[in-house]
Design a protein around this nucleic acid. Structure first.
Lengths: 249, 249
DNA sequence: CAGTGGTCTAGACCACGTC
DNA sequence: ACGTGGTCTAGACCACTGC
């Protein structure tokens, strides 16, 4: 007893505190100190400074851009509502499963009225129908619409191997700034039963997603995903305002 | 195709894959290889092996215990970082819907074996069966288990009006530090069809959730929720660390 | 070109659990 | 005493961005 047994505060904790304080005080509006700067300031190795920034990035406070620097994440750190989108590829990676992608259709079409409305565009669109397999089991079917004037050349890409989001971002320079989606559980429509090798009515997840770039809609996509594909997640509950538990009064 | 520039696969990725495969093959039931073992096996430094395990731990696949080792996380591998939990009450608020809660059962029971395992407790438990209505439509059915030794008095609470989480946090001083859950889409079981007023097989969301307080499981709950209750969300995609595009060759 | 973040090394000391 | 994970160091090379 005697001494207050100060635990042992890791050095990277102090660095995190420092950065968080700086963020709160709006001191780092044009960039958090670099890893080297932090390392020097706190007389630690770069790996230690880096560890602090690693944590902050995972916690959503900070964003890192290779070759440029580390920046305060705009709009603070709020994990909005419900979801985070996770690229299907990463998912497959995490599961250690083989991902196979089959492009069933890719052509220019005249969009149905609802789609034209959602994408706020009345011209022609590209429709992509894509089936994803995990370990040779058909797991997800996607019907996607893209404005033909935005990215007609996308028909020439290797869509089976490249993420469409990546193409939009990197090739067409469409930063994806907002995603709006809805998820329900529905019975598998008859028209898709064959693709999945299940009976109509088999429970599936149904997503409807609109992706925006700078407030203008870029692509709309519907997913049907096998209901037995579990979304598993482990996380720390975010204490929403009011969920606070004062550790005593 | 172009050039087959092999990208550059970080070494720790290979280690992650190896461990994930091993987990999937049930090879590590009594412990994942230690950091030193992995470092040697892959001829990398310990820091690199550690990086792989760090990732897997954050992703929820693996659990580390200082002085003991690294272990497969029981009943909960694979994280998507997909959800945030949103209290049903807030949800109803957002929808502007009337929330009504009906307690169908609240009693002390001897838990089924699977539940005892998940909660790591073999004594008696409290089982609560609760039905939530939105605008008088039965929307969610919950079966919850709580350790009787933790919170027997909860039977005397007004469960229809108070959030169970709030009770656990504020009354029993159980900070909810971790949530592990899985969501699938299933057909409504026959036994619940009457409650929902739907046919068996009607698509519903099925959640299985374990809530931990300081690494020890506190409550397990299963939800059945109408599939036509949409999870809607709008958000800004956060480019995760690693959203770079390892688009293969 | 210099600076940044991303990865990696080959050591090190500590606190902890097991034997 | 030994192995484990937790932290830390002082270097290193790479790919990328900026000028």
């Amino acid at each position: 007893m005697s001494t207050t047994m100060t635990k042992k505060a890791p050095k990277y904790q102090k660095i995190k505190q420092y950065v968080l304080q700086g963020i709160a005080s709006h001191n780092f509006i044009d960039g958090v100190p670099s890893e080297n700067q932090l390392a020097e300031k706190f007389a630690v190795s770069r790996m230690t400074a880096r560890r602090a920034l690693d944590d902050l990035e995972r916690e959503g406070s900070v964003e890192r851009i290779p070759g440029k620097g580390t920046f305060v994440r705009r709009s603070g750190n709020y994990t909005q509502g419900f979801f985070r989108v996770r690229p299907f590829r990463k998912w497959a990676e995490d599961l250690g499963a083989d991902l196979r992608t089959e492009v069933l259709e890719s052509q220019v079409v005249d969009p149905p009225e609802e789609i034209a409305e959602v994408l706020e565009y009345r011209g022609q669109m590209i429709r992509l129908c894509i089936l994803n397999y995990l370990n040779d089991i058909p797991v997800r079917y996607a019907v996607r619409y893209l404005r033909a004037d935005h990215c007609a050349d996308i028909l020439w890409e290797n869509l089976a191997e490249t993420s469409i989001h990546d193409i939009l971002i990197n090739k067409y320079r469409l930063p994806l700034t907002r995603i709006s989606q809805s998820m329900t559980a529905v019975g598998l429509p008859e028209s898709l039963a064959g693709l999945f090798g299940e009976e109509p009515g088999y429970p599936v997840f149904y997503f409807q997603r609109t992706v925006y770039s700078c407030e203008s809609p870029v692509t709309y996509v519907e997913y049907f995903m096998r209901g037995d594909m579990a979304f598993k997640d482990t996380f720390t509950p975010m204490l929403e305002a009011g969920d606070f538990h004062p550790e005593r009064s």
